[in-house]
Design a protein around this nucleic acid. Sequence first.
DNA 1: TATAATGTTTGAAC
DNA 2: AGTTCAAACATTAT
Length: 243
Amino acid sequence: MPEGPSIVILTEAVQEFTGQTVIAAGGNTKEDISILDSKRIISFKSWGKHFLICFDHFTIRIHLMLFGTYRINEQKPSPARLSLKFGSGEINFYACSVKFLTDDINKIYDWTADVMNDRWSPRKALSKLRKIPDAEICDALLEQEIFSGVGNIIKNEVLFRVRVHPESKINAIPATKLREIVRQARIYSFEFLDWKKAFTLKKHWLAHAKRNCANCGRPLTKTVTGRKKRRSFYCLNCQKAYL
DNA sequence: TATAATGTTTGAAC
DNA sequence: AGTTCAAACATTAT
């Protein structure tokens, strides 16, 4: 389910409930949902893979993790983790992490780190990258404080697109190439958004979960890479390793 | 049917 | 004290 663009879709999909009052809250989350009764939703936001339901003085943070799902004006047979009912409908979340935040979200979240946000700053991302010169690019792209919203699919597709081997070291990647990676992290994420909305995302994958290179046709390498130990799909022929 | 997968946090172990 | 790692969570398609 997750990766930033999917959370943008969720945020757009619930807009009809902005300004609505919760008339019933339920679910098996351990958070104290009794406080939600009669509370009015100020806004819905997203920061990378975080979905935020903003009330006066507090915010509910939903993270779908790997398996989380949601339904709008529908229910799944399985028990909801969090269910919010309004006069005109309901939102239900399943198998997700739910956390109430009481601090000011503008202090918690660096909006310039979110590749989907208007305030995304490629410059800041670049300077954060320069602070971890020894890291592998496959790990850096998954670093949410740098590329909030980027997940394993976007990682693999961006690296294929810019022809960089996932195990390349940050300090060995030429500056122009590093800038290209930062730039494509955002560009690809928005294409992901469009394709996901059109239900054609998988069709557009060129590397992720693919057998052969879309460029040269040779078999792709599929290995677990980086300290984060996530799978990478890459072409040893087309993607250059900067070591 | 067993496996693997778009993710993150926690706490034990070193 | 800082780092690393496995475990835990939980769902569904193949």
